[in-house]
């Protein structure tokens, strides 16, 4: 009887020892949040493609590498909204370098992409805004409308922006994007989206009209925007805002 109790105690002791090795991970879960908005040089929201299609926000966690340059930190990239906003609520607390990354705008402050250094704390949301100078500013001239033959039409004009100390990149092309969702960007319905138009310097400030490749087929809502780009390293687009148009069955080609 005694030995049984003795054995049981031993087993329990061994078990408890075994379990203590499985201590729970006590590192704080990623609860820090960052949010922000990219503005153009006029203070308007910088129009871009949803996700990382036309730019992203690069963040580098510097907490461990500040004192030791041999620590190599791999950057993370944040997705964008189509109006140039970004949010991530699942980051580890720490010190981060944050900068707008590889979009259709001039580099900042002449020294690569100038990064803001921010301290993110658990449970808190830190806001970081940026201002960039886009290569091109696009403005609507005629917002999307349906013509009598059932095509979707629109027009825009563009202006080239300069930034002191930088060469203006040469112009490349522009496109009209027609989408079935509000996430209108470089990915749109290829059956409607016409082929790109080449841009030349003398077109600056002129009205540029484009229309859908084929007549619109279904009565529903469409989201439309223009994009234009330069021949720089990244070949990313500047955009107009997104305009929504409801096509009624009366407007479709018969």
């Amino acid at each position: 009887m005694k030995t049984n109790i003795f054995h049981t105690t031993l087993v329990l002791l061994a078990l408890s020892l075994g379990f203590t090795a499985c201590e729970t991970d006590n590192y704080d879960e990623p609860e820090a949040a960052i949010t922000g908005q990219v503005y153009d040089h006029n203070g308007l929201p910088f129009q871009t493609a949803v996700g990382q299609g036309s730019m992203s926000i690069k963040i580098v966690e510097k907490s461990y590498s500040v004192s030791d340059s041999s620590v190599v930190v791999i950057p993370q990239y944040l997705n964008m909204t189509q109006e140039g906003g970004f949010t991530n609520t699942k980051l580890f607390a720490g010190t981060y370098e944050v900068c707008p990354w590889q979009g259709a705008f001039y580099e900042q402050d002449g020294d690569g992409d100038a990064a803001d250094v921010v301290l993110l704390k658990s449970g808190k949301t830190t806001t970081v805004n940026f201002s960039v100078t886009p290569y091109l500013t696009l403005e609507w001239v005629k917002e999307p409308y349906m013509d009598s033959e059932g095509y979707l039409n629109a027009s825009f004009k563009f202006y080239r922006n300069q930034k002191e100390g930088y060469d203006m990149p040469t112009l490349n092309d522009c496109s009209l994007y027609i989408s079935h969702t509000q996430y209108c960007g470089t990915e749109a319905d290829s059956n409607y989206t016409p082929n790109p138009t080449k841009l030349t310097a003398d077109m600056e400030g002129q009205e540029i009209s484009m229309k859908s490749k084929i007549p619109i087929r279904y009565a529903m809502h469409y989201w439309v925007r223009f994009g234009a780009r330069c021949s720089d390293t990244y070949q990313k687009y500047n955009f107009t805002t997104i305009e929504e148009i409801e096509v009624t069955s009366a407007q479709l080609a018969q």
Partner: peptide, 9 residues
């Protein structure tokens, strides 16, 4: 169907 390298209908 149109053969313009884009139409996917």
């Amino acid at each position: 169907v149109a053969d313009d390298a884009q139409t996917t209908l």
